[in-house]
Design a protein around this nucleic acid. Sequence first.
DNA 1: AATGAATGAGGTTTCATTCAT
DNA 2: TATGAATGAAACCTCATTCAT
Lengths: 230, 230, 230, 230
Amino acid sequence: MHETRKEQVIEAAIHLFRTKGYHATSVQDIADAVGLRKGSLYHYITSKEELLFDIIHETIQVYIRRLEAIAARPEPAAQRLARAITAHIEAVAQETEGFAIFIGETRALEPGPRRRIEEASQRYRHLLQQLIEEAAQEGAFRPTDSTLASLAILGACNWMHRWYDPQGRLRPQEIAQQFTEIFFHGLVHPPAGPAPAGRAPVVGTVPAEGRRPPSPNHPPHSEEPWPPGP
Amino acid sequence: MHETRKEQVIEAAIHLFRTKGYHATSVQDIADAVGLRKGSLYHYITSKEELLFDIIHETIQVYIRRLEAIAARPEPAAQRLARAITAHIEAVAQETEGFAIFIGETRALEPGPRRRIEEASQRYRHLLQQLIEEAAQEGAFRPTDSTLASLAILGACNWMHRWYDPQGRLRPQEIAQQFTEIFFHGLVHPPAGPAPAGRAPVVGTVPAEGRRPPSPNHPPHSEEPWPPGP
Amino acid sequence: MHETRKEQVIEAAIHLFRTKGYHATSVQDIADAVGLRKGSLYHYITSKEELLFDIIHETIQVYIRRLEAIAARPEPAAQRLARAITAHIEAVAQETEGFAIFIGETRALEPGPRRRIEEASQRYRHLLQQLIEEAAQEGAFRPTDSTLASLAILGACNWMHRWYDPQGRLRPQEIAQQFTEIFFHGLVHPPAGPAPAGRAPVVGTVPAEGRRPPSPNHPPHSEEPWPPGP
Amino acid sequence: MHETRKEQVIEAAIHLFRTKGYHATSVQDIADAVGLRKGSLYHYITSKEELLFDIIHETIQVYIRRLEAIAARPEPAAQRLARAITAHIEAVAQETEGFAIFIGETRALEPGPRRRIEEASQRYRHLLQQLIEEAAQEGAFRPTDSTLASLAILGACNWMHRWYDPQGRLRPQEIAQQFTEIFFHGLVHPPAGPAPAGRAPVVGTVPAEGRRPPSPNHPPHSEEPWPPGP
DNA sequence: AATGAATGAGGTTTCATTCAT
DNA sequence: TATGAATGAAACCTCATTCAT
């Protein structure tokens, strides 16, 4: 229940880095946010950059571990991919800020730490790509450029950190369901006839119980355009 | 053929902002890049931030104008959407750096200019959304959450600025073709039988003549993992 | 007895602003004067301009409070005016530098703070004007343009910051006495006859005990002409 | 009737130096004001500081020559002093800006030129002081500290550059008349009886024909407090 | 654990002046 | 005469970090 100072610091930093950006956030800002003086902060961190690294590293590690677990499941690859998409979306929804920092501020790291993060990112994408290839081998997917497919999926899902609003109209599960539907079956109306029968039900999405009444997706009283794009 | 100093400055800034980030790029860096002293740079720019704004504004304006032109074409909406995706991808491919700055550095702007950009971005996404809705009304697309669909498409296409490599294996047209295929028909193998006949040919993509021989997509001599992800 | 750093900074700034002028004084100059590095100075000030504002504001506030106290005394207005003149002169004599900055550098302030100072100045002058009007109503002064009279008195007294020399021949009290005499009775020899009897003794000036022997008013070793004028 | 470029430059500089101050006025500002580019300005000036010097020097020289002419007149000293006060006030009224620069910006000059100006100033004041002494010797003035008296008069008259408004309620002649009255006879009501008869009429002021109807002294539409003080 | 003082490097921007064209 | 490019010095200010208390 009661958080350590170190955790407070990290949370404050996450919020500030997300909101203002790493470079635009000063150590003073962080100190202010946790009610410490600038000097005292250095009891809890070694440097601003290491704080950034820790945040990003923690984030990507969690994503990778989760994806590895999913990839190891004894299920058809297509189903595992659906699970992966859902997990990714739910994770971004649950911890948008850290993920946004990972996406946006990795570049601020020094070459060394930066490479470590980039390798992890690369590994993450590669796991996705492998799922796609497996699904194709299993006959569930048509042959595609699996690299490109993984990049399309990742792009769509990662982009979410720019528009997801927890107060918004859609729950993460619904988003996941729809994204999976799009990536699996596309937007085009299936041809008439027996086609629907052939369509595999989308797996990995949970029945949409608890669906909230349709409400404006945009948080009330906000004055910013939503959702942003491109 | 000989470039103005102003243009040199802008190009240098684009390259640096893209590579190091806006905040990490000093005016000194830009001056060095064009062979001027720091002070001399101010003959060509009003401020570092205005330079950033100009770059971003120019970029988004071009995107918007292009999309408006496409949206106004006398064609089925699905076809116009395919054209839009292709145009977007080709534009990102052709001018990756400016687009990356637009995506990554808009936040560095002051509230006023920033809002102008964000409104334009929002408008761009909305145009896409409208195409999707029209395509659904025309019966080409199944009913979907058009907002979500537009965000999926945009996310996938925008993400491209993080991985596209002009020396890479795939030409923009091929990327566009495959992305369109995914967003229109999904990854799943079409059911056996007459289904393929029912599949609308993807419009807006050009026959893949000029396809280069398969070659490593990753630029030679680079030491960074590729493609990055997520 | 030992002064805070903040006080040292303010005093150094007062001296430098007075001597070289606000614009010609660099933050470096102030830092040098107190033995700090430029950056360290910003522990004690928010900005150079705010430092200027604080100096000026403090000065004018003290003047206003003092004048208000005098104006509220239960005495004939003429006597209160004499006190006001004396107090003003003694204050300028005691803290010439701050007053000189107030007079000469208010213009360097941004419009907002500047207006605050100018309103206070205006209020100060208005208090003087009211004393003159009251003295006229009480029959002590002949009817005059009280605005003009207040400006004449203020001009003469304010000008003092340009020529007053604490090492000089005259003590502030003597200056005050003579100025009051001039403003009350003028330079012209009173007409012969009963006139002296009719002349009200100047109040608010103290008997000139402690008058120093006549000595050169000009500080020794100075190479500047003295007193300056106009 | 058609002004040389050089004159235009000087006038623009006078106006700007007065309004914004010497240091706050850039060469660019001056160039803008005369419709030239910064570089072109240097065909007409040698340096910004010399421009300042020329303005100040010209001003003080005119004042000195005028005062010398007045001091040489075959009249009683008191009358010459009255003329001097009137001339000073009318000059300030007619060319407030240059005079304000002389008063406020002499300090911005380098030591050499600065000393020249200060010596001239000193000479000016000394001429006034001599008139006062002569008037005392002639029996018109009571014995006073002539230095102090000259400083009082100068202060009051010089201060005028801070409050004089050509659109204001009072004409320069009226101001001069009232100031002379104050300095000659003071503010105090003359004793009853034959006293007024003994009062020498103030000389050097012109009959107040052409006096404008009493109107607010403050320029219309101005939002600044007036007159300023102290 | 907490602080406040201090630092030094670096940030963006301004500006008077020169000079080739 | 006029210009636009260029300069170099200096301006104010920020900030991550260290350290004695």
